[in-house]
Nucleic acid binder design. Structure first.
Lengths: 224, 224
DNA sequence: AGAGAGCCTAAACATTCGTATAATTCTCCA
DNA sequence: TGGAGAATTATACGAATGTTTAGGCTCTCT
């Protein structure tokens, strides 16, 4: 056994502060990029600045909490288009829009799309900083749950097909006997697999296993 | 046995259409109230119109899916203030703002506060109708889960204090023996209570009970 | 005082669960 | 061809769970 007592599941840890965070700044105006970068660095945030959405999409997103600060109006891909693009790519980095010439429908679309804030120039530095803090915090939490789910998912994938099937049915509340009937196995076989499932998943109790199945979205549906 | 096969829990029913829905309209302009009311009634929606936020707060909210359509600028309580007020009262009716003289910060605040949409005059009827459909649908779903939780909660409250305690610990994954130690009871007593819990909660399996505990937010925390 | 309700325990039994040992069958591979 | 390694089953035993029957205890309500 490699990692024990290191339950990847439902860790209700103490509230860590946000730790390290990166702010991505996208603006075609160099002076704005620079002043925003300085502002963020002054409060101990890391910054990566780009002149266009495409540039930013080239690179890859980091492994730490981050957020995006961008002007709605950009050369090439606009801010809102970037938001749509990121959503398509399943990248859920929180976005803060800033704009000098926005309108209400634009702001509403951005907010509906999940933006954290939509600031109009001129704004006070503190407003932006507050938004950035909120955004990185949101991202940190999202990453946390995503990591938990990913851990569980990879654990689940280490199970053999039979073991996965048993886990689904057990999590659905079936007795060993019923699971055996469903899978056309002997009850003893189900017991063996069940034991292996508990061990491989690191579940210390049935309750534990059921909650794992819950967060994995396992419902024992789809006949085939 | 009183109610069987009538599980109040996790009903994955077929997608019902929205059924009946009520739209609350608040605007100080009588002619707007009338035209909005006509619009909604033309698509088979029930309507209740008011001239001010206070009037609307007098009455009580209905038991069916509903939403709120209101102007940001209102006599007395403004639209945004009403939104805040409703949030304080824990009334989560979805809100659609319409306005003739709004600005971006206003719309952003509304959206951050959970508004479904924020439309600027003039808008096409269809835009508003789409928003209303989305809003009532959201409300319908919210009511559904809230009803489920409320049902479970009231079931849980029919349990005696001991039974509740046993349920918490069982849901936490403890064995009967451990539960008994924790509560300073004999193991046999725990078994009795456990059986009663299953029966009273209508749980057909331990998995069922654990999921109920999950949606009730029972974690067996707080020492006392 | 008496009836009833909730709380607690005991003894006994049946069912279910978990694990260890051993055996069978099958595939894959050197 | 022999063997490693899975998937599966059987036997057997110990531990945990669930239910029934029975009884004692302490309240409250009437």
């Amino acid at each position: 056994m490699t990692g024990l007592s290191d339950s990847p599941h439902q860790g209700v840890k103490a509230e860590e502060p946000s730790g390290r965070a990166i702010v991505f700044v996208i603006d075609d105006d160099v002076s704005i990029r620079r002043s925003l970068s300085n502002l963020f660095r002054s409060v101990n945030l890391d910054v990566a600045a780009f002149g266009s959405a495409q540039e930013m999409l080239q690179g890859k997103l980091p492994e730490v909490a981050s957020c995006l600060v961008l002007d709605v109006r950009l050369p090439g891909l606009s801010g809102l288009e970037l938001q749509t693009e990121l959503a398509k790519l399943n990248l859920h980095i929180p976005i803060i829009f800033i704009t000098g010439h926005g309108d209400i429908p634009m702001s509403v679309k951005a907010m509906k799309g999940g933006a954290v804030d939509f600031l109009t120039k001129p704004f006070r530095d503190q407003e932006l900083l507050d938004a950035v803090v909120a955004a990185t915090e949101r991202d940190r939490k999202r990453r946390e749950v995503e990591k938990t789910v990913a851990n569980l998912q990879s654990l689940f994938e280490t199970l053999s097909p039979r073991e996965q099937a048993v886990m689904k049915l057990v999590a659905a509340g079936l007795m060993n006997k019923q699971v055996a009937a469903e899978l056309e196995l002997a009850e003893i076989t189900v017991k063996i697999y069940r034991g292996r499932v508990m061990k491989k998943m690191g579940a210390r109790s049935l309750a534990d296993l059921i909650r794992m199945a819950e967060t994995l979205g396992i419902c024992a549906n789809q006949p085939e």
